[in-house]
Design a protein around this nucleic acid. Structure first.
Lengths: 221, 221
DNA sequence: GACTGAACGTACCATTTCGTACATTGTTGC
DNA sequence: GCAACAATGTACGAAATGGTACGTTCAGTC
């Protein structure tokens, strides 16, 4: 805390040779995130991560014990980042219908803008969620995610603009499914149906469809 | 064609020593499907596939040239199997609303019953659909999938029970998204929200929700 | 300014892993 | 029956890969 020598530090004239643990750790984690999300746990190579890092392979094993631990930290960091962004959403001042619409659009766009995160979750599912299960951090992080949606939903039911009997957790499932699939299966879907799904105009359309779908689903009838 | 000595063939008293190419090939493909879908392209090991096969590693390289080609054949076989099952669906004799409902439920259940296929598609997406792009077979197989849905949709619009202006391809996207996610993200979702998603009663509920969601989406209003 | 532990670099090892060389056995056409 | 080719078994090689041993430098403390 005393030392102001954070990362981007050519402070004095000639650069002090080294020792910047926090930055090295962060750098490794950033590179690992790219590599794991791109190639998976078994596909990523420690040597390649080391090369792309300012640090050396030795440092990877110094800060993270082995490949799997590094992967776990990567996963945890990704979830943390997501939850941080989600926390910025403030829906309480909006009417329920507006709030839900906003939430859906946010989720859709957020996933679209963070393919690394989506891919890590895909990869984690390939591994049967075995690493996620080890992480108390991620479990606790996600506890409150449903709460936001629950509040909106309850308000909506009270005001009569949402129908009763829906489970917020299942509602969250539906929103996640649509937003996740948009990123996770973009490649196969685009190729099979010869449709450039990633194109802005198509993303726009899908966002509309998804929002419309969720809103129609909660509307009383 | 002349030789009736297909696979399960201890035909005469003492079993002929060997040479059953078709069966060997099929066996390798079956094992490879399990291995690749379980561990991914980079995670699967040729040696392990060889061990689990009645054949030897030599045979893998004999029939399929290398690991990636074997993976591609696995992927193609998986898509072929799916399309075969889909072809059994006969929706033309049903009213549009019923037909669509049937289609959604079929897709949902089919995906749920074929996690291997889902996982292969996940893995293929991790690889940016690079292998699928090489396969003319898969491209052609999927050409007609939209047609079924298009027919149902057009009939529905004509009879006034579906609203106009929807794109069948996008409708297919929505149905796929919900059905796919149900399998692909089961592990992470279950663990994070402490909800046994695979439990029959929950699968039942999700099937209802998904169907309801799609039907509500197409209803004119 | 010596001491100590944290931070870091280099070289290396043991295994794993994809793939192949080579020999052998079955099968089919004539 | 015999040539010619398809199918299969065994053993091995070369490179990649996760991980470590060992030594060196940095930074704070007395």
């Amino acid at each position: 805390m005393t030392a102001p020598s954070t990362k981007a530090n050519p402070p004095a004239a000639r650069r002090r040779r080294k020792n910047d643990p926090e930055s090295v750790r962060a750098d490794i984690l950033a590179v690992a995130t790219r590599e794991f999300s791109e190639k998976g746990l078994s596909g990523a190579r420690i040597d390649e991560i080391a090369e792309k890092t300012r640090a050396s392979k030795r440092m990877i094993y110094y800060y993270f014990n082995d490949k799997e631990t590094l992967y776990l930290h990567t996963l945890e960091a990704a979830y943390q980042k997501v939850r941080l962004q989600e926390a910025e959403l403030d829906l309480d001042h909006l009417a329920p219908f507006e709030a839900l619409s906003r939430l859906v659009r946010f989720t859709f766009c957020h996933h679209a803008k963070n393919p690394d995160f989506i891919r890590l979750v895909m990869i984690e599912n390939i591994h049967h969620g075995r690493f996620l299960a080890q992480s108390e951090l991620i479990q606790s992080l996600n506890a409150g995610v449903i709460d936001v949606l629950t509040n909106v939903y309850i308000r909506g039911v009270e005001e009569g603009c949402f129908r009763e009997g829906l489970d917020p957790r299942e509602l969250h499932w539906l929103i996640s499914a649509l937003s996740f699939f948009n990123v996770s299966n973009q490649h196969t879907f685009s190729r099979i149906f010869d449709w450039h799904q990633a194109a802005p105009e198509n993303q726009q359309k899908l966002e509309e469809h998804v929002t419309e779908m969720v809103l129609r689903y909660v509307r009383p009838e």
